[in-house]
Design a protein around this nucleic acid. Structure first.
Lengths: 168, 168
DNA sequence: CCAATATATCTCAGCGCTAAGGAATCTCCG
DNA sequence: CGGAGATTCCTTAGCGCTGAGATATATTGG
């Protein structure tokens, strides 16, 4: 086992010297989590760029695509799925609509609401990008064997539960 | 054990129905990682706000503080630690300098460089905020016992290694 | 039925970041 | 020494998001 020292090890060691009265062990987890998230983002970004996408656009298209026929959802549902504000969704949809990847039509049943629907081009684009995206994710996870991955996912589930991540 | 179904379970199930030809299992990990990171950010943000800070400012002050006396680093070092661009650091320092939390002075040995130093107020502020921040982190991790935390950290380490996170 | 409240979407100013590039200084090497 | 390239920090336009709030429509309770 190599004695790998990473960025967070150094941070924890520095705090140990400067503030020995504090227990900074939570940083071992949260610090690495934040750092990993940033590095993963950078990696995924490249894949998205190869398909003229960024994370925000991919996210909306994928949400519509996996919702199944007729590939149609309201802005509110997209907003909840994406964990962003309503303003952010409006702007994402402006961009996607401008590129012809989605359409926005008034809802028949609710005058306040609209139906966002994947166009054929939007459908084709996300189906082209998705396998590439999954390949990148698989590559990132390549050094984690099945058992450790399962344990990792279980821990992520627990933490998401603590923070109140419920699907409804 | 409760049969908790989370947001990502639903996503994976939807893809299974729409694209049964694809193995979307990497999303079980990356999807939860991204989602958890967002939720953690929101949680930490509240703690920072109680001390008139945001993540960017906290990050710079903490990096200076844990570097030890004389609490002085160059913008380049701060940039590398924070994983942001040089422009971002310049702007962070503008804000912190404007609030009197750090000072910027020319480097004695290198005419291109500057020394960023924590002021007394900056020192006092970070030492006040840090215990609160650690308490929040501890609360987030509260549902993970010691063994599972250790396994989680080991997995994070592996993934960071895959993505080339080295301290130098 | 109406008024009050809730909901759905959008607009927009402001924020922090990136990407690109400029200016000053340092380092290396012929 | 002197020129070429590297390094350090900063500036700025543009981007996506938030937070606040506007508008329109729906729902609820008296």
């Amino acid at each position: 086992m190599a004695e790998r020292v990473d960025h967070v090890d150094r941070i924890v060691q520095q705090w140990g010297a400067e503030r020995p009265d504090l227990d900074v062990s939570p940083m071992e987890v949260i610090g690495r989590l934040k750092r990993l998230s940033r590095l993963v983002d950078a990696e995924l970004k490249e894949t998205f760029a190869r398909h003229d996408l960024d994370f925000a656009s991919f996210d909306v298209l994928a949400t519509l695509r996996r919702s199944g026929p007729p590939y149609r959802l309201t802005p509110t549902l997209l907003m909840q799925s994406a964990m962003v504000t309503s303003g952010a969704i409006s702007q994402r949809l402006d961009r996607l609509e401008g590129r012809g990847l989605v359409t926005r039509t008034p809802s028949g049943s609710d005058g306040r609401s609209r139906e966002v629907e994947l166009t054929e081009e939007g459908y084709a684009l996300i189906d082209r990008a998705l396998p590439d995206h999954l390949a990148t994710e698989r590559r990132i996870l390549g050094d984690l064997d099945e058992a450790r991955t399962a344990a990792f996912v279980a821990a992520l589930r627990t933490l998401l539960g603590t923070l109140g991540d419920d699907p409804e």
